[in-house]
Design a protein around this nucleic acid. Sequence first.
DNA 1: TGCCAGGGCGCCG
DNA 2: CGGCGCCATGGC
Length: 319
Amino acid sequence: MFCKQNTENRKGIYNMPINSLLDIEFGVTEKGTSFAKIKNLDYFDVGAVFDCGQAFRFLPIENSTHTVEFGGVAFGKYITVAQDGNVLTVYGTDAEDFEKIWVNYLGLDFDIESARNDIVSRSDNPALAEAVEYGKGIRILRQEMWETLCSFIISQNNNIPRIRGLISTISRNLGTKVECSAELSERAGDVYAFPTPEAIVNAGVDALRDMKFGFRAPYIYDAAQKVSSGELDLLAVRAAKTTAEAAEMLMKVKGVGPKVAACTLLFGFDRTDAFPVDVWVKRVIEKYFPAPFDAASLGSYAGLAQQYLFYYERYLGGN
DNA sequence: TGCCAGGGCGCCG
DNA sequence: CGGCGCCATGGC
């Protein structure tokens, strides 16, 4: 399933050669783990990227140099992402996978500076400018469509540690085991890919209940059924003309409303204008923006702006 | 212990 | 269509 995700119609400068875009070198550690090292990378904070509520599969892991490092699975592979200042090292990838998968996943081809400028230029709101500055390490990952849909169905009325736990459990029970280098395997233990829709259909809704999905069990099951039968075509969702039409398609799944659809589109379908509204965003908007607020006024990167505002309100704890 | 969690459904007026 | 109780579960 993860192979079918297309990387066409990328915004930004995706088709440029990687070497002209990033200051990058490839190598192999003494213990045989291949890696990609990117230097002079601005506007990327690993902690913020993996801990701002957009992804639930990456966890911080210890390393000998006491630098920030997160490890997780995407596209059926396990990587870790370490950061030391403006140097980012991705372990568990060769040059081919890096260019084919991880540049896209990590959004390293995304012109973040232009997007930030675009957001700020659309408003003279000082709080927005402050939020954009405060969250300058945030990037929007381009996650897998199916896993993202399920992740945000699971997220409803739930807390982040338990969302992580449920995704980990369903992967361990119904996903296939992910192979990686002995060095990474020793550090990470056994890791599993997120299960396919077919695997979930075969397991049945009761299996999901046994895994403590609660009232979300039939939601996940319905999503799996609709996707595996072709009733919901995720590539068609991606190809939808507008973000509103794409959301409409996703909301045919039980348990998918406007918020879950917007998160799914923003984090899994490269819809940078999708604008999820939860209690935090609602609060920050009521506090700083004159009514009536229109997300479209923030432009084609409104979703990124939403992340800045969410992060600003949620983590700065402004009152 | 009780409140809350990056909501949505079903029902009710 | 706007408001509201309920939904499973466990983190804090």
